[in-house]
């Protein structure tokens, strides 16, 4: 039997660097200063965004210290992370999910497809869906740190 929590505490895995982004975030909601619940929805990305969101839960980022939590259902979430470019069949599902979000909510669109290959892209452009409350649209997402910076801006606080 090992004292796992104690062993874990000695590892100091959480990194102490500031997360910054140039991405503009258009939000006026001030009530998420203390806690922000996010729900990621895959609308047809190539799965690397999904796995990157999983990595967001890693101790290196320790997002709970910022008061950012994953919700289990969109109905419990404040921010909907739309991951990727929607396939045609996911469009109604996405609109229904947005419809289920409690007010006030924000949507962050995350895409990572290479912009140089725009003409061979599949799926539906997210702009054509006219989703409400899209506060940020990350077109060239690279790593979770960017996303944390955006979420911190939505919270309206500092880390």
């Amino acid at each position: 039997m090992k004292w796992w929590p104690v062993w874990g505490l000695t590892k100091r895995l959480t990194e102490r660097k500031p997360y910054a982004t140039e991405q503009t975030v258009e939000t006026k909601i001030k009530i998420f200063r203390k806690s922000l619940h996010i729900y990621p929805i895959d609308v047809g990305n190539s799965n690397d965004l999904n796995l990157d969101i999983r990595a967001l839960q890693a101790p290196q980022y320790n997002i709970h210290r910022f008061g950012i939590f994953f919700a289990d259902v969109p109905r419990h979430a404040d921010v909907l992370l739309v991951l990727g470019r929607p396939t045609e069949k996911m469009v109604p599902v996405l609109t229904e999910t947005v419809n289920q979000m409690p007010e006030p909510f924000s949507i962050v669109v995350v895409e990572n497809e290479d912009p140089t290959r725009r003409k061979s892209q599949t799926g539906v452009g997210i702009k054509s869906l006219n989703l409400p409350n899209v506060v940020a649209h990350l077109t060239n997402y690279r790593e979770p740190g960017e996303l944390i910076a955006v979420l911190l801006k939505i919270k309206g606080g500092t880390n």
Binding site: D42, V43, N47, I53, F70, V93
Partner: peptide, 9 residues
């Protein structure tokens, strides 16, 4: 297709 348990759609 959208659940907390299955990440992908």
């Amino acid at each position: 297709p959208v659940t907390g348990g299955v990440i992908e759609s």
